[in-house]
Design a protein around this nucleic acid. Structure first.
Lengths: 223, 223
DNA sequence: GAGTGGTCTAGACCACGAG
DNA sequence: TCGTGGTCTAGACCACTCA
């Protein structure tokens, strides 16, 4: 037996996909919709939360709920964001010292001098991704790490979790929205970690794409 | 100003991490906890939902809320699940025909005969991942696709979304829990799609790991 | 100030698990 | 049968946006 919120979400989803509700359109207010579906407002809000997680609607506090423009998805392609028109990047640089899990990630002792680059990308006025890139300060920092010669391997770990309140406000998303959290570690041929990065992408508008090119014969490297 | 649910989640999280609440222990019932924190039961449940999304607790209907054993995380490593002791796999084979997005994914015309492999992996009694693998029936199906010679490229797209009700019951997770959804497409040197797979991993207990080996010089392949 | 969504309350009833 | 979590109700109050 499907729950009420799923039934309502299914109905609204159909209206959006069929074009009955057009991209950019504002939905009726939550009390009005709740009355239409004969449910309480929390139940209606649960239904909208499902659509929000799917990236079909956008909730804007004080303004209303809006149908998202379809397929405006940000694609993270193994190592970098795909270039896109209308994409603005804000970078803030901070010097700090390794501590705790950051030291483990970079394989450096505690208190090693690091440089943190905080990237915040916007598409138009909409924030789209948040990245913290850490580089040991003794390594040449101004270049793009992935263009540096001697780079041997990049490991990327993808997980999903709910946005922290800080991320939610920086990315202007709900703190109940899941995000893709990517931890990227690049090392050179000597095994030294050249760069570590933590990326946060809103789950309702982001994909991560990884492409593996296979060589002719795959050796049986065990795991 | 932090919300009540975050404050409560922070407190419980601290108790779990410090070992004040031990792995496997059952938390007090939700009405009891709500009374302790002097909040309503929905608010307390919202706090627990945060911890559930982090993988710190497990909610079992009719039994209670339990502290999860730490770091029992399933890691999907670009192309396959890491072998693990105590891992059982159930496979169901179905013959069907391509339609809609499945045809697009496999780059075959509609109604092309396909074989679907439904994988359900368990760790002990706990379901851990759900995968649907599609192979065109005219290609040799019994082998493991990633061991087949002539395989040229694997593209994997990672997104996050909420579990569908069907996935939730198959994986025995809450339908409010985010999952990692991975679409994997493998093609051979001729550009034909050898295999397409849709994988679903519970977000509270799964990582996806991708390793890129860089060659000496990276050509400027544009995106 | 009017209208919107965000958070929270204090219940009710149902479905599941174990004795 | 009893206690558990899952769902839902009908409100209240606050924060944000815009006129």
């Amino acid at each position: 037996m499907p729950s009420l919120r799923h039934t309502i979400a299914d109905d609204l989803r159909t209206q959006i996909i069929t074009g009955h509700l057009k991209a950019g359109a504002r939905l009726p207010s939550e009390p009005v919709l709740a009355a239409q579906y004969k449910v309480s407002t929390p139940t209606l809000r649960n239904a909208l939360a499902l659509l929000q997680a799917e990236g079909l609607i956008e909730k804007i506090h004080g303004k209303g709920n809006f149908v998202r423009h379809p397929l405006r998805r940000l694609t993270y392609t193994g190592g970098r964001l795909t270039p896109d028109t209308d994409l603005h990047v804000t970078i803030r640089t901070t010097n700090l010292r390794a501590r705790g899990d950051l030291g483990v990630l970079l394989k450096v002792p505690s208190c090693t001098p690091l440089t943190e680059f905080l990237y915040l990308t916007h598409q138009g006025v909409t924030p789209h991704s948040l990245a913290r890139v850490y580089v040991p300060r003794d390594l040449a920092p101004p270049e793009l790490p992935w263009a540096r010669p001697g780079l041997a391997e990049t490991q990327e770990t993808v997980t999903t979790r709910l946005a922290t309140p800080e991320e939610a406000s920086a990315l202007r998303i709900s703190s109940t929205l899941a995000v893709l959290a990517i931890t990227r570690v690049s090392s050179d041929t000597a095994g030294r970690v050249v760069e570590a990065a933590r990326l946060v992408l809103p789950g309702d508008r982001a994909n991560a794409l990884f492409i593996t090119h296979h060589t002719t014969v795959e050796r049986g490297t065990e795991g």
